[in-house]
Computed example of a mutant assay.
Amino acid sequence: MTRRNASLSALIMGCTLVFSGSMASAEDLPPLPPVPPDYADKKMPAGGWTDPKAIEEGGKIYRGEFKTEVNCSSCHGKDGAPVKKGARDLRDPKLVCRFSDAFWFWRVSEGVPKTKMKANKGLLSEEQIWQVMAYENQFSHGGKPADRSCYKP
């Protein structure tokens, strides 16, 4: 195959993907890793996703105003938009709604291997981790408190 034919073939395949609507989406993402047994039963306390006081406290922690060792916004951005390569975009409900309470709690507690996301276990109490999660959840809901009815196992 000549270089011209190869280029033309690549262009046609790209156009076909675009016009067929087969671009990658959150649904095409690989399955999330299983939650370890120590975290499998974690569930946000009742009303925690929309509790204004919890969200306010979670915002302070997220922005690094609570403890200097914890500053989620340094990677995830002040509005949930990544500022560092590899950080999740917390504004995208297609991504955030994939996280069960247990999965999200586990990741905030233990960090994410092979990334810059550090473990917060030992730096934050369980209540503070829930507060941060409630604050982060707002990013994928237009900056407003929201329950997790978007989560589908």
Score class of each variant (00 low, 15 high):
residue 53 K to N: 12
residue 147 D to W: 05
residue 33 P to H: 10
residue 116 K to L: 13
residue 47 G to Y: 03
residue 43 K to G: 01
residue 6 A to D: 08
residue 40 A to Q: 06
residue 8 L to I: 14
residue 69 E to C: 09
residue 138 Q to C: 10
residue 2 T to K: 05
residue 99 F to V: 04
residue 125 S to W: 08
residue 106 W to A: 11
residue 106 W to L: 03
residue 137 N to K: 13
residue 99 F to H: 13
residue 38 D to T: 06
residue 134 A to W: 01
residue 114 K to H: 15
residue 86 G to D: 12
residue 133 M to W: 07
residue 80 G to Y: 02
residue 24 A to L: 05
residue 64 G to K: 09
residue 81 A to L: 13
residue 146 A to P: 01
residue 17 L to S: 04
residue 98 R to F: 02
residue 97 C to W: 03
residue 95 L to W: 10
residue 130 W to K: 05
residue 72 C to T: 09
residue 125 S to K: 13
residue 87 A to Q: 04
residue 99 F to W: 14
residue 79 D to C: 01
residue 99 F to G: 02
residue 78 K to V: 14
residue 81 A to G: 12
residue 117 M to P: 01
residue 142 G to Q: 07
residue 44 M to W: 00
residue 94 K to N: 11
residue 89 D to L: 03
residue 122 G to L: 06
residue 94 K to C: 00
residue 148 R to C: 06
residue 144 K to H: 14
residue 49 W to M: 09
residue 7 S to C: 08
residue 17 L to D: 02
residue 133 M to L: 15
residue 112 V to S: 09
residue 75 C to S: 10
residue 140 S to A: 15
residue 90 L to T: 04
residue 135 Y to R: 10
residue 64 G to M: 09
residue 147 D to H: 07
residue 116 K to T: 13
residue 91 R to H: 01
residue 15 C to I: 08
residue 56 E to V: 02
residue 55 I to K: 00
residue 3 R to V: 11
residue 111 G to P: 05
residue 142 G to R: 05
residue 32 L to D: 11
residue 49 W to T: 03
residue 35 V to I: 11
residue 129 I to Y: 03
residue 75 C to R: 06
residue 32 L to G: 06
residue 21 G to K: 02
residue 125 S to E: 12
residue 93 P to W: 07
residue 55 I to H: 00
residue 137 N to H: 15
residue 51 D to Y: 09
residue 12 I to D: 07
residue 5 N to P: 00
residue 81 A to Y: 07
residue 57 E to L: 14
residue 109 S to A: 14
residue 56 E to P: 00
residue 12 I to E: 08
residue 29 L to Q: 13
residue 43 K to W: 00
residue 27 E to C: 04
residue 21 G to Y: 01
residue 11 L to Y: 02
residue 22 S to L: 11
residue 90 L to G: 02
residue 64 G to W: 04
residue 28 D to G: 01
residue 37 P to S: 12
residue 6 A to S: 11
residue 8 L to F: 09
residue 21 G to T: 04
residue 4 R to A: 15
residue 145 P to M: 12
residue 22 S to E: 07
residue 143 G to V: 10
residue 46 A to H: 06
residue 141 H to S: 09
residue 51 D to S: 12
